[in-house]
Amino acid sequence: MTTTGPAPLLRGTATDGAPAVRVRGLVKRYGGRAVVDDVDLDVRRGEVFALLGPNGAGKTTTVEILAGLRRRDAGHVAVLGEDPATGDRRWRDRVGVVGQTTGAGDALTVRETVDHYARYHAQPQGSDELLGAVGLEAAARTRVDALSGGQRRRLEVALGVQGRPELLFLDEPTTGLDPAARRQFWTLVEGLREAGTTVLLTTHYLDEAAQLADRVGVIAAGRLVEVAPPDALGAALRREATVRWTEDGAPRSVVTPEPSAVLRDLLAATPSGEIPDLSVTRPHLEDVYLRLVGGTSEGDPR
């Protein structure tokens, strides 16, 4: 079991060893209820980090605090070495944000929108190149209010990376996208990572986190319950296997960390013939994830 996969050749942009994001004891309360509850988090330079959790787990609130859009109630936060609560314009220009609800004057065309927002950045990427990177060249003359949902998300991403950010926040970037558009989006994120951009994305899709992230932080009810590479998530839970068979017409099952021993006993008790419906299964990533976030309710977005 590898931990992070092959190391990219170009890692990060920092010469120092400080992480891109460093969070200690982060707390955010709404009406006395902690929606982010004592979270510690490090995002390394050049990695793609996924904050994975159900709706209402505190993902968006966390990202908004890190992006300097919301104030925290307690804790220490450093993003690219600065406190986002007091980050100045130079700092903002180094950070890209693709939020869930940001808009851009609907009556403009895609090209006009991109050309306009280029003027806010110190070193904007060229508009042609940018629209090519997100696959919107053909829609350049389309008005924003006539774009499909997927095209709109691509425009959001284009505007998020336009200033060549060192760190990019992607808040549920593929929610509402069809499967093909999601795949294309994943390719885009992989390209960003290869170019050295640090990415922190939130998602409630396990497959997305597994596909994109070097490391995944599972968040539930405001608490970070585990941080691990995708294939090491819930390692302890996944060591448990379930042995199932049928005995005297009734289904039987045993949950055990040592399925071989159970099998040996079973085989010894059945010297001849087949054991009906015999199977050994280990929990899928999905099952592990659900157990990690167990006890939290769905719904209640934010």
Partner: peptide, 30 residues
């Protein structure tokens, strides 16, 4: 959406972002 060619600018080499007057002029047009 095939390849992203966005390379982040190296830290320290990034100039200051445009000022309020420059962006303000762009916004009047918008």
């Amino acid at each position: 959406m095939t390849t992203a060619t966005t390379h982040p600018a190296a830290p320290g080499t990034r100039p200051a972002p445009p000022g309020a007057a420059t962006i303000g002029r762009a916004r009047i047009g918008l």
